[in-house]
Amino acid sequence: MNKTDLIAAIAEKTNQSKVATGEFLDAAVAVIEETVAAGDSVTLVGFGTFKAAARAAREGKNPKTGEKIKIAATTVPRFSAGAGFKTKVAASKPKKAAKK
């Protein structure tokens, strides 16, 4: 499912226009991004938590040359699924992957 499909599905469930739903989704994503970028977390009970996490500096390997490289420390976004979300996913039957 891509963003367009998500907007259409939400619009259908809420009886709202796709335009209004798209604006709402864009605003929600922007607020989550701004909040996490500022160092706070966003928790949607039953769904999950968006937060920033520190990633330590480490040594990696250039896959082309095999040469060791240093990877700088950084802050990355993380999502931790909530109990309700985990339960729903665990109870569903996964779709078979499409063959290439």
Results as ranks from 00 to 15, higher is better:
residue 1 M to N: 06
residue 2 N to L: 07
residue 4 T to S: 08
residue 7 I to W: 13
residue 7 I to N: 10
residue 9 A to M: 11
residue 10 I to R: 12
residue 10 I to F: 03
residue 11 A to R: 00
residue 15 N to R: 14
residue 16 Q to I: 13
residue 18 K to P: 01
residue 22 G to V: 01
residue 23 E to I: 05
residue 26 D to R: 00
residue 26 D to K: 09
residue 27 A to W: 04
residue 29 V to Y: 03
residue 32 I to R: 01
residue 34 E to G: 15
residue 37 A to T: 04
residue 38 A to Y: 11
residue 38 A to T: 11
residue 39 G to V: 05
residue 40 D to Q: 13
residue 41 S to V: 11
residue 42 V to T: 00
residue 44 L to T: 10
residue 45 V to I: 13
residue 46 G to M: 00
residue 49 T to Q: 05
residue 50 F to A: 04
residue 53 A to W: 00
residue 56 A to R: 14
residue 56 A to T: 15
residue 57 A to I: 00
residue 57 A to T: 02
residue 57 A to G: 11
residue 58 R to G: 08
residue 60 G to W: 02
residue 62 N to W: 09
residue 66 G to L: 06
residue 66 G to M: 11
residue 67 E to I: 13
residue 67 E to T: 15
residue 67 E to H: 11
residue 67 E to F: 14
residue 67 E to R: 15
residue 68 K to V: 13
residue 69 I to M: 02
residue 70 K to P: 13
residue 70 K to N: 08
residue 73 A to I: 07
residue 74 T to V: 13
residue 74 T to C: 12
residue 78 R to Q: 10
residue 80 S to Q: 09
residue 82 G to E: 06
residue 82 G to L: 01
residue 87 T to D: 14
residue 88 K to M: 06
residue 89 V to H: 02
residue 89 V to P: 01
residue 90 A to N: 10
residue 90 A to H: 07
residue 90 A to R: 13
residue 91 A to M: 13
residue 91 A to K: 05
residue 92 S to T: 09
residue 92 S to N: 05
residue 95 K to H: 06
residue 96 K to M: 07
residue 97 A to R: 03
residue 97 A to W: 01
